[in-house]
């Protein structure tokens, strides 16, 4: 790899780490918006937020459908949100 590319990669790594540490990354922005949307729908729809409602939520309009689905899965694994109800596609904030 040319040395100037190595330096660019080094700079990118530096700012990416800073972005993540400060909570400025697009990923953390999506996560925060998703948790807020789940909590908002949760308070309106008797304890759960459906995937279709989340996709239409104003806070999530700037994100693509695949990004939202990926984030939902990752946040369910990390315990930030949980699945609720007998059928798939319903979420609530983790207590």
């Amino acid at each position: 790899m040319p040395r100037d590319l190595k330096k660019l990669a080094k700079l990118k790594l530096l700012v990416t780490r800073m972005e993540a540490d400060l909570g400025l990354s697009e990923h953390s922005h999506l996560n925060r918006s998703l948790v807020t949307a789940v909590a908002d729908l949760n308070s309106k729809r008797a304890g759960c937020a459906s995937t279709s409602d989340l996709l239409e939520h104003p806070l999530l309009q700037e994100f693509s459908r695949p990004s939202i689905f990926r984030a939902l899965k990752a946040m369910e694994v990390s315990g930030e949100i949980k699945k609720v109800g007998p059928v798939r596609g319903y979420y609530a904030p983790a207590q």
Partner: peptide
């Protein structure tokens, strides 16, 4: 070493 949050050390 970037695992140490190099930006803070900088």
């Amino acid at each position: 070493d970037f695992n140490m949050s190099a930006w803070k050390w900088l």
